[in-house]
Amino acid sequence: MSRFKEVQDLVHSLEADFEKFYEAGNKAAGTRVRNGMQAIKNLAQEIRTEVTAKKNAAKK
């Protein structure tokens, strides 16, 4: 569950940058949003790999 908390924290940390980009048109905030979304994608892939490994280990 700590990995889920990491995802939540990362999403929450991007909230201000989303607002700055979409509401104020701040291009630097858009770059931070893109970088943060890439980090979320990578973390999600790591979690998927862990879940698959745990699921397959339970079958044995």
Rank of each mutant, 00 (worst) to 15 (best):
V51K: 03
L43K: 15
V7D: 05
A53S: 08
Q38T: 07
R32S: 13
T49I: 08
K5E: 15
H12R: 15
F4Q: 13
Q45M: 07
A28F: 02
T52M: 06
K60T: 06
L10W: 02
E19Y: 09
Q8E: 08
K55I: 07
K27I: 14
K60G: 14
R3I: 12
A24I: 03
L14T: 02
K41A: 15
I40A: 08
Q8M: 08
A39G: 06
F21R: 05
K59Y: 03
N42I: 08
A29L: 00
E6N: 14
H12S: 13
G30M: 02
S2M: 12
F21T: 00
N42L: 06
M1T: 05
R32C: 03
G30E: 00
E50R: 07
R34W: 03
T31D: 15
R34A: 12
E15G: 14
I40M: 13
E50L: 09
A24W: 00
N26K: 08
A28T: 14
Q45D: 12
I47C: 04
V11M: 03
K41T: 09
D17V: 07
Q38E: 06
A58L: 07
V51D: 05
K27E: 12
Y22L: 15
K27V: 15
Y22W: 10
V51S: 01
K27R: 12
I40W: 02
V33E: 01
T31Q: 15
Y22N: 07
A44N: 03
T52Y: 07
N56S: 06
R48M: 11
F18S: 08
F21S: 09
V11A: 09
N56I: 01
L43H: 03
K60Y: 12
T52E: 14
R32N: 09
D9T: 05
Q8A: 12
Y22D: 04
T31F: 13
A29H: 01
Q45H: 07
D17I: 04
A44P: 00
M1C: 11
V7W: 01
N56V: 04
R48L: 14
R34F: 11
D9I: 01
